[in-house]
Structure formats: structure tokens, C-alpha cells
């Protein structure tokens, strides 16, 4: 579905001198530097897959999306989507994909949302049956009924994003590019959008390429991940593998009275107690889950026990915090 080979994008950036003297000098002399926004990236995304792109600010995520949707020309390398160059795909290609930039709306701002949807019907040459089928499904799943008569300018951020996501599905895209779709949204709207996207991916087979700083988005929607840092690809694989490769500790949470000394059995673990809940964080290199569970069962009258899954936030903060080398 998507294949990128040694993809590069170099931006020319004007460097301004500082200070009053520098400000005057800038008027007559320009200094330019080349910035590698995307630096030799190669990856592959399968048909109907859901691929997350993780990276800190300025890592090259948006640039990568813009090259894949064909509005930005790569400096070097090659990108193919559905086997074709997005730059050469023209309108036919644009009718097969959908794009949502979280901070920029695709809706026409001064007309009711329903009118924007009607425009999509014309622009994407949808017949009435096809349009109605998608429209009804989207309206129901994203609870859009109330906001359809309202101009986009008057919508709240959450409403606007639901309307934007709905609009992009009207033409039934084969592949969807989402650039931080849940930025600034409250938890309910995030949940609605994630559930909807996951459903469209799993049930309709719509491919999803997602960038987000909200790692819960990635956890709930995607199976595979690429990680970018300073324009370079530093990880390409499954989300599960990413988690397990970089997780050093795991946590068990126990509810129940203590009946023995857990420190004596697990001296390498850190134990904290909050009321009747005890949290045991143990290094996975030192103890197996079986050893920990046995120790816990000997030291507690267990009422409830939870094994915490590795948290993607921790993994990513380690990668970008320089703790880990990939």
C-alpha cells in the first residue's frame, strides 16, 4: 500500500542573526542552511494496515505525510502509494485517500457542515446511494446529527474534529492519513474518534497512517509503528515489539492484607503501599512473572491482582530522552 525507499526532504531554512545589528544585516544578507526534515527513510505499510508514526516535534512526521499525499516534492528517494507516485497520481489518487490535519480543518468554515458534506459528494463524484450509505453510518457513529446544520466556524474543537473525520470518510477512502487528529480534544471525543477509526480500519479495511503525540491513540488504533527522530527512522516494527524491547520494569498491583516480607523474596523490586493497594515494580531481567506471582501469593492474602501492561509513554520517553539506543 505504501512503500518508501530512502526518502529524503531537505528544506532550505533562512538563518537570522540576532540582536539589533543582526536585524539590520539580515536585511541585506541572507544565510541559508539546509535542514534534513526527512533523512533517508524506508518503510512499508501493508494494505488495510494501521501504522503509527511516532516522533518528537520536528522529527519529520508532517513532512513525511505531505510527501505521501503528493503536495510536497521529495528531494530524493521514492515513495509509492498503491504502486504509484503520489505526485503523479493527480485527482484520481486524491479520490482514493483521505487526509486530516488535526490543526487545520478541511471543512468550509462559513457554511453548515452538511453543505461541506454535499460538496464532497460532488468533488468525489459519489452517487446518491454511495453517499447516503456512508453519510448515515458516519453520522450515527460520530453522533453528528446536532452539528450538521452549524457552520464549521461556530463548532467547538471536538465537534469540528468529529465533523472533519466524518467528512474524510464520506468518499470511502482506501487509505487515510491522520496528522495528530486528537490534539487538544477532551477524553470523550478522543474515545469516540479512536473507536470510530479502529472500527473503520478493522471492519471496512481502510488503511490508516497516523501521527500523534497522544500514545493512547497509537495504542488503540495501530498495530505497527515507525519511530522517527531528527528525520531518521529509528524503529520499524510492531507496537508490541517496541514495548517489550524497551520495557525494563513491569508492575503488579495487589489488593489485600500483607502476610509476609516481599522484600525478602524480591530484593530487586520496589514496593509502595497506598492504603490496601500495594504496587510492586520489578526488573524483568531479574525476575520472571512466575517468580513474582509466587512471591506475591506467599506474602499477601490476595483479594485482587493486576499485572500492568508496559506503557507506551514510558517507552517513547525513554527513546527520545536518550536513555535508549534503538
Amino acid at each position: 500500500m505504501i512503500r518508501a525507499d530512502d526518502l529524503r526532504k531537505v528544506y532550505r531554512v533562512n538563518v537570522k542573526k540576532t540582536g539589533l545589528k543582526g536585524a539590520f544585516e539580515n536585511l541585506f544578507r541572507s544565510e541559508w542552511i539546509e535542514k534534513n526534515a526527512v533523512d533517508g527513510i524506508s518503510f512499508h505499510m501493508k494494505e488495510g494496515g494501521a501504522l503509527a508514526c511516532i516522533g518528537e516535534n520536528g522529527a519529520g512526521k508532517s513532512t513525511l505525510i505531505k510527501m505521501m499525499i503528493g503536495i510536497l516534492t521529495p528531494t530524493a528517494g521514492d515513495v509509492r502509494v498503491f504502486g504509484q507516485n503520489p505526485r503523479e497520481g493527480g485527482r484520481k489518487y486524491l479520490r482514493e485517500i483521505g487526509v486530516v490535519f488535526g490543526q487545520k480543518s478541511n471543512l468550509w468554515t462559513d457554511i453548515p457542515v452538511i453543505e461541506s458534506y454535499q460538496a464532497v459528494k460532488t468533488l468525489y463524484r459519489l452517487d446518491e446511494r454511495q453517499f447516503r450509505q456512508n453519510f448515515d453510518k458516519i453520522t450515527q457513529l460520530l453522533s453528528l446529527e446536532q452539528i450538521l446544520p452549524v457552520p464549521a466556524r461556530k463548532l467547538s474543537l471536538g465537534q469540528r474534529m468529529r465533523a472533519d473525520i466524518g467528512m474524510v470518510f464520506l468518499h470511502g477512502p482506501r487509505l487515510l492519513f491522520l496528522d495528530e487528529p486528537t490534539i487538544g480534544l477532551d477524553i470523550n471525543v478522543k474515545h469516540t474518534i479512536r473507536t470510530f477509526l479502529r472500527k473503520m480500519n478493522q471492519e471496512e479495511g481502510t488503511g490508516i497512517f497516523l501521527t500523534s503525540h497522544d500514545l493512547d491513540d497509537i495504542d488503540e488504533i495501530c498495530d505497527d509503528t515507525i519511530v522517527l527522530s531528527k528525520g531518521k527512522l529509528i524503529y520499524d516494527g510492531t507496537l508490541e515489539n517496541l514495548k517489550h524491547r524497551f520495557v525494563r520494569d513491569r508492575m503488579i498491583q495487589v489488593v489485600g492484607e500483607k502476610s509476609g516480607d516481599i522484600h525478602a523474596l524480591l530484593p530487586g523490586a520496589s514496593v509502595t503501599k497506598e492504603g490496601r493497594i500495594t504496587k510492586i515494580v520489578y526488573p524483568i531481567g531479574e525476575y520472571t512473572s512466575a517468580q513474582v506471582l509466587e512471591a506475591v501469593s506467599r506474602c499477601f492474602n490476595i483479594e485482587d491482582i493486576t499485572i500492568q501492561e508496559p506503557d507506551i509513554d514510558d517507552v517513547v520517553s525513554r527513546i527520545f530522552g536518550g536513555e535508549e539506543r534503538v
Binding site: 503536495i71 486524491l94 490535519f101 487545520k104 480543518s105
Partner: peptide
């Protein structure tokens, strides 16, 4: 404002 990106991705010249 950057909202021009919406025009760039519409299937119309």
C-alpha cells in the same frame, strides 16, 4: 494560516 492544505488535497485543480 496554513488552512490552504485543505485545497491542496481536494480532488480539484
Amino acid at each position: 494560516s496554513g488552512t490552504v492544505v485543505a485545497r491542496c488535497v481536494r480532488p480539484a485543480a
